[in-house]
Structure formats: structure tokens, C-alpha cells
Design a protein around this nucleic acid. Structure first.
Length: 889
RNA sequence: GGGCGGAUAGCUCAGUCGGGAGAGCGUCGGCCUUACAAGCCGAAGGUCGCAGGUUCGAUCCCUGUUCCGCCUACCA
């Protein structure tokens, strides 16, 4: 009591800053490279260095932090490896935009100076998201923070590239890839987002070269005809069996191109004629290879038409489409235009329409790597949770195609390959070779392209731990315990980490993958800037405090269901934080030291009960977190703190604490109160770290940070008393009796200020003993003036009755209450019972049920029937008496 | 085109052996009871999407169906 008294309401702001600094200053997030404790590691899904914290990050990192803090309390050596990735395209875009504002561009600067600028940008702004994670309370081992472009991680990237190349798993070649004209780079198939678009289907007539007729083809991209090198029909298509022409004249260009026959062509589509543009369509590319067709690149890498497009050269591709259509119309080659809805690829970074484009790129041969990644999950070396995602994972890996890893940008890991200008030899090596190993020439030029950012993040679980060195860190923490991530990067990242981890470490990168849901808005819509429904996590934190926000996220993080976020929900959990705060405030008015371990046999019922419940809740919570059921853990704690600890326990022991009972009773209850608060804070700490740390320091007898505390039942902690079913049952009886009286009071509209007289008739001796022993508790909690325990089943005159498990309660209402109301109440109660009774009776009348249902189920139902019947009879007889009384009065 | 998920109280959602439907919020009624009005006490509210089937018994298992959402796919 005294100076340490808590404020009336919890104010998160100062508290959060103060304790985060304290944790960092005291090195409480640090893992030990090695040691006797069990290693438990997570690697953070590295946010883009350009990123700002959004709801997805908040959920993802809150869940990870809960696991980390929980495992620390359990005694593990926890490593949460933080960092960011260099986000090649995104970061380059940001810096290019900045240059544009300054009236220059990267080409004017040149590669080296541009990259220097990006590094500068990173120095200045790159830690924004890290600081935001700290606001969230993330207990990452910040001293180990990594960046995918760090020297160590870059060495790992080069090593992986070189080895895969020499193993034949990386190759270079001319293929159709996805080209973003705005970002000016190739993209992997995964990086293309498909969206349905209302376009047109243009039907164009290609005349036969011999003048005997023509073929009509249909296309959604008429401008690509400038690069056509054939027209194809299906060999089985009878419509084209009679034709003698072997070539057509390409309209506008007047180039003669062959008519070929290929089974790929769908006879049912349009006229069955297909224009073939090997340089601008993946299928056409394959057809071209089968028929040795030339490839003509009509659209350049800058999105403008090339010299191959003749008079259209230099036009933007979409401008060109208009011109081509217009000219086809004018020359009568355009048969019709029909509206056509089809799926079009867009760049996942800038949403520009992707153009399939022929170019020379580097690829990872994915199949052999994928096979190992599939097997590891099939054999259970890595578990995917919830399991439903395993199917998605298998499906993608089983149909995986080679991965285009080269990007035509500057910011990233430059590909460690050199070409000899003298003899053309390609050298792939960790370092720049001094001269050509083949011809000895000194003119080696490094490949200009850089690697896909995902190539480096695929190595994250081991590159961050010092690989290719065999570090103690790797030994202690690889494979990591769990990867926590959203399903949106299951393929981008998780599958690729699996492939690389298995290939280079010979072991899976993580034992578990916990896949969580998306955070949506209140209406279930995906949050997006264009919809204007984005909720900024930092705003929420500012307004409601980090703890309330984290608890909300955890409480809604049910497996397989998206999290719908709204301020109102956070507000609700802020009330919970405040409730805890005030419970602690109350406790601290009485607690003034550390209390000795409790002696069970001396305790009162409420004390024994709350300890038993505490024990069960700690088990429940541990089990829930061990199986990634965050919402179950949160709900168990919420219910325990509010509805058991606050609503019943604190109220029950108030008389003792206020000194209304013997001093010894006060001491015993203080000991239990201390213990329960102490342990409850520990249980809550993973979810709401700040407020628990704050209260922890106010609680007498605690030592240092709550982060260093031991989970109830762990070696360093005092073992909690075992569950006590007897205490739970007895307390349940008292709760029922009190609730029965409160119900009468509420339903009949008696003022809470009025102290009532009650007569209780226990069902048996055991119940009688409990009620007599704890009559004071009933008096206090039910606000009675007196309580009489009687063996008589006789109902006192002018009373209202409640039937609890194990006791009948009469509240004397002479002159207090309107008996019409009381009669109504009893009739309602009777109606409810009748409904329940009917369903049970129906069951018991069913011979099949009696014959076929398991014996214990039948017994149970019969017990239920007996109990219902008893209640029904008591209420009925009371009702009869009320009717008498009512008519008499 | 293929695949997956959801549909339970006014709202958001739990419900993992098939055995009397739960929580939070909201609503209604009553309370400033010396931790908390960000609170306390009480209450109302559900054909568990629809139609079949299996079963003694179905929110749960099976089949079909409707609506919503998502992922995937090279049909011009």
C-alpha cells in the first residue's frame, strides 16, 4: 500500500516505451550461440526494406512474439532472427522516383553511383519498419539483425549460385519470360498476377499467298501480328484438309508466312486458325520450336515497337494496337471485333500489363529440388499447420516450372558469371576470375543482371546464421522450430526455402510451418489503399495501446479463418487490459511482500478453487500454444482473469482481505492472491508484454524482468498445486446458490441495496456442510441480511425460489415483491424445463436408443432426466403455493 | 478450366470421439456495492445455408445444391 498504488486507469504510452528500452538495455532478447538449454529458433519473414508496418506484419509478428516469449518462459534458449530483405524491384523503384524528382535518372548516374544512392537511401529510411516492429513489442534478437545484401548473406548467395550452376541446376537460355515494361525486367511466373479484363477478340483475315482464299484468325493482341511467323491449324481439322495453299500473306506487313499444322490448335475456337508469334507468346514459342520457325521481336523491352514492326516502329504497344486495328479496318482485313473477357497478367510490383517476351535469362531447374521439398513434408520432417495448406504446397511443387531468377535491374546480387570477350567462354565463380580459363584472355565482363530477391530470401534460415561457415549458431538453431507466415508467400518463399534448405543444409529449414490468415477490414474486404479501408496498426497502437492490439490479434487468430479487424474490437480488449490493471491495483492495496508457498490444507474453499483453476488454465494455455491455437489460449486467459479471478475470487476473499475475518485467514488468502496474480501475469505476458511487465515490477517480491520468470510448473518455478476437482465442485455449488439468489433479485426487480433473507435447503449432507461452512461467503456475494440452512423441504410463506445443483433456495419476499411477477418468473422457468425435459424423455422412450447407445450415454441421459424432474417438481410445488398465497393476499 | 475455404445469436466468430448449441461485442432491465461506469448484477436472443442420405441419435459423417471469398491455369 502507499506510494506504489496504481493509477485508476491504465495508460499505455509511457509504460510501453519505458519497458521496451529496459528490455533492450538488459539484453533480454538475446539468444546464446550455444548452451545447455534447448534451442528454439524462428527467422522473421523479412519485411521489405522499403516497407511500412501493415496489419499483415502486425499479426505475423505478434504471433511470433507470443511464441518466443512463451518459449523463454518455458526455459528455452530462444533465437528470433530479425532482418529485412533488399526488395530489388521495389527499392529500385523508390530510389528511381526520388531521382526523377531531382530531375535525373539512374542511367545518368551510372550503375555504381546509383547503387551507392540506394545504400544511402537504405541507411536513412531502411530501419523504419524495424522501429515499427519494436512498437509492436517484438522481442527479436536485434543485435543479430541481417539484411539480404549484407556481405555474409551475399557470399551465401554467390556460393549457392555457383554450386547450383556447376550441378547443372542453374542454366542460361533464350526463353519466353514475363516482361514488365515499366520495371524493365523479367519476372518469374509467380510474380505475375492474373486479372480478368474486358478486352476484345479481333478476327483478322490472312489471305493465302496463292490468292485462293484465306484463313481467319482471332487474337486479343492484334499488334503482335507484326511478329507473326506462321499461321497454324489443327491437322485433324477437316475445314483445312482441302486447301492447297502453303502460305499466307501477313496483312499490313505483306510478309509471306507458312501455314503449319500443329495439334496444339483448338479446333473449336473461332475458325480454328491460330496466328503464331513465337517471340511474344509462350505457346507460340513452343510451336515455333517444334516447327523451326523464326522468332520476330516486334515489341521491344521498352514497350515500344521495334524496327521489325516496320512503319509502326517506335509506337507504344497500346498505341500500336489502335493503329493496327485502324489499318486493318481500312484495308478490309478486319472481319469483326467482339467483346471478350479474358485473364491478363500484371506485374505484382507495379500492376503494369505483362508482355510475354523472348529474352536470354537465367533459370533454376526446379524439378529435382522440388521433389525433395515434397518428400520432406510427406515424411513429416516439416509439418504444415493447418494441414489444409499442405495440399496447396504439394500441388504447386508437383507442377513446378523452371524459375527465372535473373532481373534486369541494378539493385541486387549481381550474377557471378563472366563472359570472355575474346573467346566467348562463360565462367561462373565466387570471385571475378583474373583471366579466361579457356583462352587466357583478360577481357572478362560480368553479367549485368542481378538475382531475384527471392533467390536470396530462399537462403534466409541458414544464411542469417552464418552459412557457408559451420557456425555454432547453425548447430544450435538449425533446423528452426517454426516458420510463421501468411499463405500469400507459401510459394514465393516457404517452398523455396524448403528446396534450398534441403539441398544445401541436407535438412529442412523448419520443423513446423504455421500458416496464418489474412487481416481484412470489418466487412471482410482485403485492405487496400485504393479502397481506402486500410487501418494503420500504428494508429491503433497509439490510440489503444500495443497490448490491447496484440490481444485482439491473438484472440481473432483462429486457424483457417481471416482476421477481421476493427477499432471496436480493439476497444473491447482494451477494457480487458484495464480490467487486469484494476485487479492488480486492488491486489496491490493489500500485498506488501513476497508470500511463502501456500499450504493447501489450511486454505479456504475460494483459495483452493482459484489455485485449481489457475493450474488448469496454465495447462490449457500451454497446450493451445503448443498447437498454434492462439485464439484458444487468449480466450482461456480472458475468461479466467475476468470471470473467475475478478468476478468470483476477488469478491469472495474481500472480507478476509478487509480484515473482517481472522488475521490468519487474511494471511492465507494474501498468499494465494499473490501467487495467483504472480502466475497469471506470467501466463499473460506473451500476449500483453507491457502491462504485465509494469504490474510485475509493482508486485512485491518479484525480481527483475518478467521475461526472466519461469512458466508455472517449469523447473525454476514453484510447482502449482494440482487440479482439485473437489474444490471445484464445492465452489460450483456456492456459485450456483449465489447466482440463484441474484437471479431472483434481478428478475423480480429488487434493489441491489436491499439485503435479503434467504432459507437454503441442501439436497444432501455434503452440500449442507459446504453451505454451512461458507454461509458468510453466500451472505456477502448475494447481499443477504441472513441465511438459514434448514433440513425442511417446506417452502416459507411469501418467498421466491431458485433451484440450484444441490440446494433449493428461498428468498423471503414478504412485503418486498409483487407476487404476480414472481409467478411469472416461475412459469417461465417451468416452461424452459419442460422443453429440456421433452427432448430427454423422447430419447428415453426410444427403444433403439436404449438398446444401441453406449451404456454410459444412457446413464448420463437418465441422470439428466432425474435432475430435471426434481427441479421441475420443486418449482411446480412452489408455484402452486405462490398461487395460493397470491390469491390469499 | 481445376482446386480450396466459409455459411452457427443482431454483429464477429469458437465448437478436433456423432450424445442436452457457446464466447466476445451489441441489445434490454437494474445498479456510482470503498479495484475497475473502460465497471457490477440480471435477462432476452439460434430450423447451426437449403434438400436428401447414413445412424438409436447429425452443427459434426456422406451426396447433391445455393450464395460468398480465395488460390491456381499458356484456350488464342
Amino acid at each position: 500500500m502507499g506510494s506504489d498504488l496504481l493509477d485508476k486507469g491504465y495508460e499505455p504510452h509511457d509504460v510501453e516505451h519505458r519497458w521496451y528500452e529496459f528490455w533492450e538495455a538488459n539484453d533480454l532478447f538475446s539468444a546464446e550461440d550455444q548452451g545447455p538449454r534447448r534451442g528454439y529458433a524462428l527467422v522473421i519473414p523479412p519485411p521489405n526494406v522499403t516497407g511500412v508496418l501493415h496489419m499483415g506484419h502486425a499479426l505475423n509478428n505478434t504471433l511470433q512474439d507470443i511464441l518466443c516469449r512463451y518459449r523463454r518462459l518455458k526455459g528455452d534458449n530462444v533465437l528470433w532472427m530479425p532482418g529485412t530483405d533488399h526488395a530489388g524491384i521495389a527499392t529500385q523503384n523508390v530510389v528511381e522516383r526520388k531521382l526523377a524528382q531531382e530531375g535525373t535518372d539512374r542511367h545518368a548516374l551510372g550503375r555504381e553511383r546509383f547503387i551507392a544512392q540506394v545504400w544511402q537511401w537504405r541507411e536513412k529510411y531502411g530501419s523504419a519498419i524495424i522501429n515499427q516492429l519494436k512498437r509492436l513489442g517484438a522481442s527479436c534478437d536485434w543485435k543479430r539483425e541481417r539484411f539480404t545484401m549484407d556481405e555474409g548473406l551475399s557470399r551465401a548467395v554467390r556460393k549457392v549460385f555457383v554450386e547450383l550452376y556447376h550441378q547443372g541446376l542453374i542454366y542460361r537460355g533464350n526463353y519466353i519470360i514475363n516482361w514488365c515494361h515499366r520495371c524493365h525486367t523479367a519476372l518469374a511466373d509467380l510474380e505475375v498476377e492474373h486479372a480478368e479484363i474486358d478486352g476484345n477478340l479481333y478476327h483478322i483475315r490472312y489471305p493465302f499467298a496463292d490468292g485462293s482464299g484465306g484463313i481467319t484468325i482471332a487474337t486479343t493482341r492484334p499488334e503482335t501480328m507484326l511478329g507473326d511467323t506462321a499461321v497454324a491449324v489443327n491437322p485433324a481439322d477437316e475445314r483445312y484438309h482441302g486447301i492447297t495453299a502453303t502460305a499466307v500473306i501477313l496483312p499490313l506487313v505483306n510478309r509471306e508466312i507458312p501455314i503449319i499444322r500443329d495439334a496444339y490448335v483448338d479446333m473449336s475456337f473461332g475458325t480454328g486458325g491460330l496466328k503464331v508469334t513465337p517471340a511474344h507468346d509462350p505457346n507460340d514459342f513452343e510451336i515455333g520450336r517444334r516447327h523451326n520457325l523464326p522468332s520476330i521481336k516486334a515489341i521491344g523491352d521498352d514497350g515500344r515497337m521495334t524496327g521489325e514492326a516496320g512503319r509502326f516502329a517506335g509506337l507504344d504497344r497500346f498505341e500500336c494496337r489502335k493503329s493496327v486495328v485502324q489499318e486493318l479496318q481500312e484495308t478490309g482485313r478486319l472481319e469483326k471485333i467482339e467483346p471478350y473477357r479474358h485473364s491478363v497478367g500484371h506485374c505484382y510490383r507495379c500492376k503494369t500489363v505483362i508482355e510475354p517476351n523472348l529474352s536470354r535469362q537465367w533459370f533454376v531447374r526446379a524439378k529435382p529440388l522440388a521433389e525433395k521439398a515434397i518428400a520432406a513434408v510427406k515424411q513429416g520432417e516439416t509439418r504444415i499447420i493447418p494441414e489444409i495448406w499442405a495440399n496447396t504446397y504439394f500441388d504447386w511443387l508437383e507442377n513446378i516450372r523452371d524459375w527465372c531468377i535473373s532481373r534486369q535491374i541494378w539493385w541486387g546480387h549481381q550474377i557471378p558469371a563472366w563472359t570472355c570477350e575474346d573467346c566467348g567462354e562463360l565462367v561462373v565463380a565466387m570471385q571475378a576470375p583474373p583471366d579466361c580459363p579457356k583462352c587466357g584472355g583478360a577481357h572478362l565482363v560480368q553479367e549485368e543482371d542481378v538475382l531475384d530477391t527471392w533467390f536470396s530470401s530462399a537462403l534466409w534460415p541458414f544464411s542469417t546464421m552464418g552459412w557457408p561457415e559451420q557456425t555454432p549458431l547453425l548447430k544450435t538453431f538449425y533446423p528452426t522450430a517454426v516458420l510463421v507466415t501468411g499463405f500469400d508467400i507459401l510459394f514465393f518463399w516457404v517452398a523455396r526455402m524448403m528446396m534450398m534448405g534441403l539441398h544445401f543444409m541436407g535438412a529442412v529449414p523448419f520443423r513446423d510451418v504455421y500458416v496464418h490468415a489474412l487481416v481484412r477490414d470489418e466487412e471482410g474486404q482485403k485492405m487496400s489503399k485504393s479502397k481506402g479501408n486500410v487501418i494503420d496498426p500504428l494508429d491503433i497502437i497509439e490510440r489503444y495501446g500495443t497490448d490491447a492490439f496484440r490481444f485482439t490479434l491473438a484472440a481473432f487468430a483462429a486457424q483457417g479463418r481471416d482476421v477481421k479487424m476493427s477499432e471496436k474490437r480493439v476497444e473491447g480488449y482494451r477494457h480487458f487490459i484495464n480490467k487486469l490493471w484494476n485487479a492488480a491495483r486492488f491486489a496491490l492495496m493489500h500485498l506488501d511482500r513476497r508470500y511463502d508457498p501456500v499450504k493447501l490444507d489450511e486454505l479456504c474453499l475460494a483459495d483452493r478453487w482459484i489455485l485449481s483453476r489457475l493450474n488448469r488454465v496454465s495447462l490449457e494455455m500451454a497446450q493451445a500454444l503448443d498447437t498454434y491455437r492462439f485464439n484458444d489460449a487468449a480466450a482461456a486467459l480472458y475468461g479466467f482473469v475476468w470471470h473467475e479471478f475478478c468476478d468470483w475470487y476477488l469478491e469472495a476473499v474481500k472480507p478476509a482481505l478487509h480484515g473482517k475475518l481472522a488475521p490468519a485467514a487474511r494471511e492465507r488468502s494474501l498468499g494465494v492472491l499473490w501467487r495467483v496474480l504472480h502466475d497469471t501475469l506470467i501466463l499473460l505476458h506473451p500476449f500483453i508484454p507491457f502491462v504485465t511487465e509494469e504490474i510485475w515490477h509493482k508486485l512485491p517480491g518479484t525480481d527483475g524482468s518478467i521475461m526472466r520468470a519461469a512458466f508455472p510448473g517449469e523447473a525454476a518455478a514453484a510447482a502449482p498445486p494440482p487440479p482439485d476437482p473437489e474444490a471445484e465442485a464445492r465452489m460450483g455449488l456456492l456459485i450456483d446458490v449465489v447466482s440463484g439468489i441474484r437471479n431472483i433479485r434481478g428478475e423480480t426487480g429488487i434493489s441491489p441495496a436491499l439485503n435479503l433473507d434467504a432459507v437454503v435447503h441442501p439436497a444432501d449432507d455434503a452440500a449442507k456442510a459446504v453451505i454451512e461452512q461458507y454461509r458468510d461467503m453466500i451472505v456477502t456475494l448475494a447481499r443477504l441480511r441472513s441465511i438459514t440452512v434448514t433440513d425442511s423441504a417446506e417452502r416459507p410463506k411469501a418467498s421466491a425460489t431458485a433451484v440450484a445443483r444441490g440446494a433449493t433456495i428461498h428468498v423471503l419476499l414478504e412485503g418486498i415483491v409483487d407476487f404476480a411477477k414472481e409467478r411469472e418468473r416461475m412459469e417461465k422457468e417451468l416452461g424452459k424445463l419442460a422443453k429440456d425435459f421433452a427432448s430427454i424423455a423422447k430419447k428415453l422412450q426410444n427403444q433403439d436408443f436404449l438398446a444401441k447407445a453406449p451404456a454410459e450415454v444412457v446413464t448420463k441421459v437418465m441422470d439428466q432426466q432425474r435432475e430435471l424432474l426434481g427441479r421441475q417438481q420443486k418449482i411446480q410445488s412452489n408455484l402452486d403455493k405462490i398461487r395460493e398465497y397470491g390469491s390469499a393476499s
